[in-house]
Amino acid sequence: MVGIWVVLGVLLIGGIAGVVLRARNGRIRAAKPVERELPAPVAAALDSDAAVTLVQISTTFCAPCRHTKAILEPLAERTEGLRHVELDVTNQPEVAQALGVLTTPTTLAFSGDGTELLRIGGVPKGPAVLEALDEHLSGASSRPTS
């Protein structure tokens, strides 16, 4: 009888953990104001001409990273003022550490001057990204082009 309760308890805890992880996937969070110098690869990836640069932190064997790229790259191509850059940190863990990134994919949105605007953990939803960045893209016409 005790074995059944243990199995049910494990299933319940596993189910709750799965629901929590699924809810956190793709969640957009506002950036915390932190004074830090950007790592060189990130600073080099920023486009001062773009209103917002999305820097996707990825690793080589990350399947969700490919899905994230498939969403963000076309979104940036059809949205004025938005640029997408994928940064593979497999051999540069110090870059992820300096940015406070613990999991991949994590996407960071930066303004042209290098200010972090927001973070997205997991695979984002395109319309939600545009909605979250609307105020930052408003000067560049945040409407996707045809």
Results as ranks from 00 to 15, higher is better:
Asp113Pro: 02
Trp5Leu: 15
Glu37Tyr: 01
Ser138Gly: 00
Thr103Tyr: 12
Ala109Ile: 07
Gly114Ile: 09
Pro74Ile: 08
Val42Pro: 06
Ile71Ser: 01
Gln97Thr: 07
Thr103Glu: 14
Glu94Ile: 03
Asp47Leu: 11
Leu130Lys: 03
Pro74Trp: 11
Arg143Leu: 15
Asp88Cys: 10
Cys62His: 05
Pro74Glu: 10
Pro127Cys: 06
Ala50Cys: 12
Asp113Gln: 10
Leu11Arg: 00
Thr68Gln: 14
Glu116Ile: 08
Ala45Leu: 10
Gly18Ser: 12
Ala23Lys: 05
Gly112Leu: 09
Lys32Trp: 04
Gly14Trp: 11
Pro93Thr: 05
Pro74Ser: 05
Val85Asn: 03
Arg24Pro: 09
Thr79Phe: 10
Lys69Trp: 10
Ser138Val: 10
Val2Gly: 03
Val19Phe: 09
Arg78Leu: 13
Val34Ile: 14
Gly9Thr: 07
Ser138Asp: 10
Ser58Glu: 13
Thr145Met: 15
Ala70Asn: 11
Thr59Ala: 12
Glu73Lys: 09
Leu118Thr: 00
Asp49Arg: 12
Gly121His: 08
Asp113Asn: 14
Ala140Asn: 02
Gly3Ser: 03
Gly9Lys: 06
Ile4Lys: 02
Gly112His: 06
Thr59Ser: 12
Val55Ile: 14
Thr103Trp: 12
Val129Met: 11
Arg24Trp: 13
Glu135Cys: 00
Ala109Met: 09
Thr115Arg: 14
Leu46Tyr: 01
Gln97Ala: 13
Glu131Arg: 12
Gly122Asp: 07
Glu116Tyr: 03
Arg83His: 08
Gly14Ile: 08
Arg83Lys: 15
Lys125Arg: 12
Leu82Thr: 00
Leu54Tyr: 02
Val20Leu: 13
Ala30Met: 13
Cys62Tyr: 07
Ala44Asp: 15
Glu116Ala: 11
Leu118Cys: 04
Asp47Thr: 02
Asp134Arg: 14
Val89Met: 08
Ala128Ile: 07
Gly121Thr: 10
Val20Tyr: 03
Ala51Leu: 08
Leu21Val: 06
Leu54Thr: 00
Val55Leu: 13
Ser138Thr: 08
Val7Ser: 03
Leu11Asn: 03
Val85Phe: 10
His84Phe: 15
Asn91Arg: 13
Ala51Trp: 02
Gln56Arg: 07
Phe61Met: 12
Arg143Glu: 15
Leu137Thr: 01
Pro105Cys: 11
Val101Pro: 05
Val10Gln: 04
Phe61Pro: 00
Arg27His: 07
Thr145Pro: 01
Ser48Thr: 15
Ala109Tyr: 04
Gly100Asn: 04
Cys62Ile: 09
Val55Pro: 05
Val101Gln: 04
Ala43Gln: 14
Thr90Cys: 08
Leu133Tyr: 04
Val20Asn: 01
Gly126Arg: 14
Gln56Met: 13
Val10Asn: 03
Gly3His: 02
Ala31Ser: 11
Ala40Cys: 02
Val85Arg: 14
Leu75Trp: 05
Thr60Lys: 09
Thr107Asn: 06
Glu135Lys: 10
Asp113Cys: 05
Glu116Asn: 06
Val89Phe: 10
